[in-house]
Computed example of a mutant assay.
Amino acid sequence: MPDALSKTIPVWCAVINRAIKIRYPELPDSWDVKLYTPPHVVSTQEHRAIELLLDEWSISLANSSYDLAKLANPLRPMWITPSTSTFPSLPPPGSGKFCPVICISASKQISDAIERRGGGFSYVQGSGDDHELWGMGLTPAIFWRHRKELLDTPRSHLSDLVESLVTNPFPTESNKSPPTAISHLRGRILICALADLQSQPSGEIDQEDDTSYLLVTADPKAQDNEAQPAQPSDGGRVLHLHVASGKRGQYQFLRDILPRAMGFVGRELKQGRKVCIACETGKDVSVGIALAASQKYFDDDGTPIFEGANAGNKQTIRTRLEWIVASRPQANPSRATLKRVNEYLLTPEEFARGR
C-alpha cells in the first residue's frame, strides 16, 4: 500500500479533526481525534512516532488563515485492498460517529517478489508517488476529460492514446481554465498558466479590459532582462520576461525577474487595474511573483497599499501563501522559488545592492 494511503491520508484526517476541535471548542469530548493507520502496513513503533507530531501540526493548521469548516462528523480513514475479505462496516447516515474516507489500493500483498500478478497488482515501492515516470504526462484534468475513451481503450493501444492526448499542442477552449483571482486580495491579483490565456496578450489591450498581464516564459538560453527597458517602452500593459532553468534561473529570478515584476505590478495596481501573472505551469514562478506582490503591495487585511515598504516577516509571507493556496489549490511553488521570494523581501536593500 502506498504511503499516501497508509500514512498521509490518516495523518491529514487526524490533523484536521484536531484542528477543528481547537477552532470549535464547543464540540463534544467524544469528537474523535485519534490516528488510525492500517496495522498490517504501519508498525506500532511508527504509529506512535507519528502521533507525537500531530499536536504541533494541528496547532499550526488551527492558527493558519485557512477556513476550516465545522464538520458534522470527524474524518476516519478505512482501507480496501485485494486482500480485503469483507467490506468495512460504515456508520448509518446521521449517526454522528464519523465520516469515512475510503482508501482503495489495487495492489495485493505478496510473499515472493517474483510472483506473477493474479487477483491484484504487485506493488512497486515508490511507483505511486512517481507518476511522472509512469504516467506519460497524463494529468487528472486530461484523464477526467477523456475518461470514457481511456477506460474503453484496450491495454495494447492505451500508450498511443495517452501520448496523443498529452502531446496535443493546441488546447481547445474547453481545455482552458480561467485565471484564478486571489480572493483575499480583492481579486486584484490573478494567476494562470500561459496556455490558459485566451490569446497571447499584446501591448494593445482593450481599454474596457481592466487587467494587465505579466508573462514569464521558461527559456534555457534566457539572458538577464536588464538590457530591456525597466517598463514596457510604450507604457503598455503587458510585460513579457524570460527566465532560464537551473541555478542560473534562480539567480535571475531573484536579481532580475522579481524586481522588474514588482515595478510593473505596483504601477498597474496603482492605476486601479488587476494584474494577471502567468507562467508555464501556473503553479511555481507565477505563484512566487504573486506572493512577493501580495506582501509588498497589500496589508494584512488584503487591502492595497502603495506608500512605504511592506517587507513583512516570514509569518506574514507564509500567511499570504495560504491566501494564494486557498484560492488556487494547484499552486505548488518549489522550495527554491519560496527561498528566493523570502530573500528578496527580507534582505535589506543596501545589502542586496552590494551582492
Results as ranks from 00 to 15, higher is better:
Leu161Asn: 08
Tyr66Ser: 06
Gly137Val: 11
Gly312Asp: 04
Met78Lys: 14
Ala309Gly: 05
Gln207Phe: 05
Cys192Leu: 00
Ile289Met: 04
Pro74Met: 10
Asp299Glu: 03
Ile205Phe: 08
Arg155Pro: 08
Arg48Trp: 06
Phe121Pro: 03
Leu346Lys: 07
Leu190Glu: 00
Gly236Ile: 11
Ala292Gln: 03
Tyr24Gly: 04
Ile59Asn: 10
Leu291His: 02
Pro220Phe: 01
Ser95Asn: 04
Trp31Gln: 13
Thr180Ala: 01
Tyr66Gly: 06
Ala106Asp: 12
Asp67Arg: 15
His47Asn: 14
Trp31Ile: 12
Val33Phe: 07
Leu5Trp: 01
Tyr297Glu: 05
Ala309Tyr: 08
Glu115Lys: 06
Thr180Pro: 00
Thr347Pro: 01
Val162Cys: 07
Thr347Gly: 00
Met78Gln: 13
Ala106Gly: 08
Lys221Phe: 14
Asp219Trp: 09
Pro171Ile: 06
Ala352Cys: 04
Ile191Trp: 00
Ile182Pro: 02
Val325Cys: 13
Val238Ser: 08
Ala227Glu: 12
Arg320Gln: 12
His40Ala: 13
Asp130Thr: 13
Ala4Trp: 06
Gly235Pro: 06
Ala278Asp: 01
His47Thr: 12
His242Phe: 10
Lys176Ser: 00
Val287Ser: 04
Val341Thr: 01
Ala336Gly: 15
Leu53Gln: 15
Ala4Glu: 11
Thr44Leu: 13
Pro28Ser: 14
Asn310Cys: 10
Asp196Glu: 01
Phe298Met: 03
Pro91Lys: 03
Leu150Phe: 07
Arg155Asn: 14
Ser127Gln: 12
Gly126His: 12
Phe170Gln: 14
Ala352Thr: 09
Ala244Lys: 06
Tyr344Ala: 02
Val325Lys: 15
Lys108Trp: 15
Leu35Ala: 00
Ile102Met: 05
Asp256Ala: 10
Gly137Glu: 12
Leu197Thr: 02
Trp323Asp: 08
Asp206His: 06
Arg260Leu: 08
